[in-house]
Simulated assay, not measured.
Amino acid sequence: MGAWGAAISSNDTYADIYGEFFDLYNDGLDVDEISKKLVLDNKEIIDDTDDSNNFWFALAKAQWECKQLDKSVFDRIKKIVETGADLEVCRQLEADEKDIKKRKVVLDKFLAELQTERLKGKSRKKKIIRQPVFEKGDCLTFKLENGNYGGAVILEAIKDNEYGHNLIATTRINQSNKPTKKDFEDAEVLVMNFASWDNKPNVKWYLPIRHKHIPHLIETIDSLEVQKNYDINSSMFGFVADFDINIIEATDKQIKSEETKPRSKTKQTIKELIKNKSRWKLW
């Protein structure tokens, strides 16, 4: 599980389940059929105490938006919220009390929302073919909370599909001067061990569905040659939809965490992600 904040939707599991729900919905499947499929396909998440609530929150939200909130799903959410079970999960994941209080407010509002009835169910969307917002190899920089520059590299750009996916590797760049192409070439990938993150390299497929509010935060510096090709259908990387939260704020949180907690011992470099291993041995 990757949690980014107090909001119901601020974690990878919610984003994945909610996104898959409406992918299937827009393909014409019924809400009940979609719900059963998601439950069957995500047993491991549902059985994970740390992540189970996020699955049910996403399913409940999607059903509610379609005006088809199942009573058993609602009752499950009501129990999670009213017993404080989700807040206890947050405590076990070492969230501070300030964030837990924010989470409680969010949960109470979420439950209240589910108890209201939408005037109209969400319409199915006709799939639109989109192009990625970044080109493969782009080196992106952005300002961090500490005033320094951070950076990310675009490992892949999937064209002519519904979302226009980019695969983004966040780096450990954290410097006062604007990074150069060489800085990106020599950079390490940001490996996250703050909060509940367990030494996870921050390499994610980016769905730019809310990207229109982001471009002013990002500058393209240069471009690297990415020799590797990444297949979205067979990769193990997760999906994110908020560049500011999942890339910029993630860097800020990891930097802040390292003031009191050692950085992860796991290391991965940008060169490892962009270069094919040579098949030739020199001697």
Rank of each mutant, 00 (worst) to 15 (best):
H216V: 10
M192F: 08
K253V: 05
E185Y: 03
E185H: 07
N246R: 00
I214P: 01
F243A: 04
D222P: 06
L224N: 05
N276F: 09
P215D: 09
D242P: 02
D242K: 02
D183W: 06
P262H: 02
K253S: 10
L207K: 14
I247G: 02
Y206G: 02
Y230V: 01
E185I: 12
W197Y: 15
H216L: 09
W205S: 00
L224W: 05
D222M: 00
I248C: 00
V226P: 04
K267A: 05
K275C: 08
V203G: 03
K275I: 12
N246H: 11
K256Y: 05
I218R: 01
N229C: 01
V203F: 04
G238Y: 03
M236I: 12
I248K: 01
T266I: 12
R210F: 15
W205F: 13
I274W: 04
D222K: 03
K228M: 06
I209P: 06
R210V: 13
Q227A: 11
L224V: 08
T269D: 08
R263F: 03
T266H: 08
E259G: 08
K271M: 13
G238C: 11
F243W: 10
K228Y: 06
I209Y: 08
K212T: 13
Q268W: 09
K261S: 12
D231Q: 02
E258R: 11
L190M: 14
T251R: 08
I218T: 01
I218E: 00
I270E: 10
E188L: 03
K267T: 13
T220W: 06
E258A: 07
I270L: 05
T260M: 06
E259P: 08
T251G: 10
N229V: 10
L273P: 01
T260A: 12
V191L: 11
D186H: 13
F237K: 02
K265M: 07
P201D: 06
T251D: 06
T266A: 13
S223K: 15
F194D: 09
L217K: 08
R210W: 14
E249K: 14
I247R: 00
E249S: 11
T251F: 03
Q254S: 05
F237Q: 04
N199G: 09
H211S: 09
N246P: 06
E258H: 13
S257V: 07
R210A: 11
F243C: 01
N202Y: 02
S196L: 14
M192A: 14
L190Q: 08
P208T: 04
L273F: 05
K200I: 14
F194K: 04
Q268R: 14
K256D: 14
G238F: 02
S196N: 15
F239E: 07
R210Y: 15
V203Q: 05
W197G: 10
